[in-house]
Nucleic acid binder design. Structure first.
Lengths: 228, 228
DNA sequence: ATAATTAATAATGTCGACATTCGGATGGAG
DNA sequence: CTCCATCCGAATGTCGACATTATTAATTAT
């Protein structure tokens, strides 16, 4: 990786913030494997900035949980145990339920067509695992971001990013996508029908199903998506 | 404030981590007022370290939400709008409910006496608002930390710290403490009886009641606990 | 007198260098 | 041959200096 960064002092982002986004993306998109050490010197020369900027960037990425910083031992891509993966999915299920419950009241009428469009995208990409994962992420993000709480949205999405690799893994089979899309259909209909309780249920089930599939695949020693 | 920091490289904490703890404590204990600017130079000279260490410390404190860092504009003590306070309490209620629900199954038999002791502390300090707030925090922390999820515990406690001033404000009246202690009694009994559903309900109610009191006090223009 | 413009001050952003600690290679004792 | 102590290279921790931007003060035009 030999990409350079704008060193002009623009208004929108400070240098470490830009680097942080890049590192975060790289981790979510599996360009680094879990547990991999992220050496400040390497990153600094890779991005063409000083160690100080990288160091601050790592603190920012740590905030999302994607990176773990150990004193005197540097940063590494967060490696989750099976228990931790389960834990994150559980918490996310709860928060996703809360978000979708709120969404029912918070979604403005103008947002309904987009919700339907995003669901249509999901159906259209049913046969392509990669595309389905992307579409699933998009509609998730839409739901969560329109639930009326920036904090809640950031939390849910952060947990989602931390387990992105497992979600992707789980959506790799057709049966699983069939299950997933059924949940999404139920969720979207509940939202459009104004049934908050039901929406919460579907949202939680959606995450639970993903969790169960991913964990059982892991238990069977399924190939990780990593490629380090 | 003119305190100096161990500059010997000990094993337990790196310098910025120590500073971060101090800053976090200072904010939670109301030594800074919300919105107050935290200048790197000031903090650096106050703690007797360089700006770089302070800067990293601020990133760590930002992780807890106690500090907000704006690009090119530095750090300031996070100032919450009324909506944000409500939002945080709502999310925390949900998570506290989840934690206490789990606690019922996760609490080992050896933890029961301590839970009872912490509740006894609560009753004993009923007449002193300050002491009651401390005891309340202690039993909360115990419950959340024994729910089996480090992540969930950190989240709940982090949200708690972010709204600590409002919780303290709400517990300043006797009627409110009576309400609070009734909820705690119910919660402790539910836990000891092994009733997870009920425990969840009491836990959520506990936070909701705090939220309602704090918000109504704020709406009436109650004196903030700040002293900046 | 007020408002806009500009200059001075003070803050943050970024960097390179030095200090300290970690991890593995090296070598010797049992 | 294995295990432990030691040492060396490499990585992180910390600092002070310089670059750039925000903020305030001064100045001028209306």
């Amino acid at each position: 990786m030999a990409m350079t960064v704008q060193k002009t002092y623009d208004i929108y982002a400070t240098l470490p913030a830009q680097i942080a986004v890049r590192i975060g993306q790289a981790i979510v998109e599996n360009e680094f494997s879990p547990g991999q050490k992220l050496r400040e010197v390497d990153l600094a020369s890779a991005f063409g900035v000083s160690r100080a900027s990288v160091r601050e960037a790592l603190r920012i990425v740590e905030r999302e949980g994607l990176v773990t910083i150990l004193p005197q031992r540097g940063a590494q891509v967060t490696a989750l145990s099976v228990d931790e993966v389960q834990d994150i999915f559980d918490i996310r299920a709860q928060l996703m339920g809360l978000a979708c419950e709120r969404l029912v009241a918070a979604l403005p009428a103008s947002g309904r067509p987009e919700l339907e469009r995003l669901y249509a995208d999901l159906e259209r990409s049913f046969d392509d695992a990669e595309a389905y994962a992307r579409a699933s992420l998009a509609i998730s993000e839409f739901c969560v971001r329109n639930a009326g709480s920036r904090r809640l949205a950031d939390l849910v999405l952060s947990f989602g990013r931390q387990t992105a690799r497992y979600t992707k893994l789980s959506l790799s089979t057709v049966e699983r996508r069939r299950q997933s899309i059924a949940n999404w259909r139920g969720l979207v209909q509940s939202i459009l029908a104004g049934n908050a309780r039901e929406a919460e249920g579907f949202a939680r089930q959606l995450v639970f199903d993903t969790r169960d599939t991913a964990l059982s695949m892991l238990a069977r020693g399924m190939p990780e998506t990593a490629r380090g």
